[in-house]
Amino acid sequence: MWKWLHPYANPEVSYHFAGKLIPWFKYLTILLLSIGLVWVLLFVPADYQQGNSFRIFYIHVPTAILSLSIYSTMAVIAFCGLVWQLKLADASVAAIAPVGAVFTAIALITGAAWGRPTWGVWWIWDARLTSELILLFLYLGVIALHSSFSDKSQGGKAASILTLVGVINIPIIKYSVEWWNTLHQGQTVTKLGAPSMASEMYWPFLVCFFGFVCFLGWIISLRFRTEVLSRNAMRPWVKSVAELSEKK
């Protein structure tokens, strides 16, 4: 059943596969994000209560949702890597972690900028904000562990274990606004049932969201390729790739 996946465990095959994905992700990112951002900055109506400061929603919410999805993806990869001892899994986790850290940081910073005019504070230690900050530290820990061993496979193993331990934080972040009293509002789009926003505000959100998804795919494919190259530098196929790119 999983036979079709097996060739991709080969670094050379997945290197070229990622190369084929890059242009798709790149042009979709440029298309969706330019449509989405122009739409939300110029055409979407202001919120009845928050006015224009609500527009930061379209960057804050996609990056915050994706910071959780990136982490979950990383955890699944780390899990498979630990059980099946895949070398490529280490390369993928190493490629993904910094991107996740940046998305988490963007979510925290845009959240602070949004909190100041609406709530009245930049930061408050409520459950949602604190658990998201812990997520940032988890990402930083994974990055640090990867580079703190001279043996890359050992560093990858340590980082994978940390990734799996940290996965406990994901449901805590997601449900923090339901389990506890928080200043942060409840879920608008990720809950079951209809999103609690007007449809002319929801459609541009979807465009921005998928724009950010493609952006992620683009950056992660690029990073994955460099990770694979640096981990296989001694292999003949990498040499032929290098020679080919020199000829061009």
């Binding site: 109506p45 202001a46 919120d47 009845y48 209560q49 928050q50 609500f54 929603f57 609406t118 709530w119 009245g120 504070v121 408050i124 200043l183 509002q185 409840g186 879920q187 608008t188 609690s196 926003m197 007007a198 002319e200 505000m201």
Partner: peptide, 18 residues
Amino acid sequence: SEVLAKHDENYMPKEIAE
């Protein structure tokens, strides 16, 4: 000594709200 506003998760344009 401090009053913070909590906003809910519903967003809508002014016309709909009115």
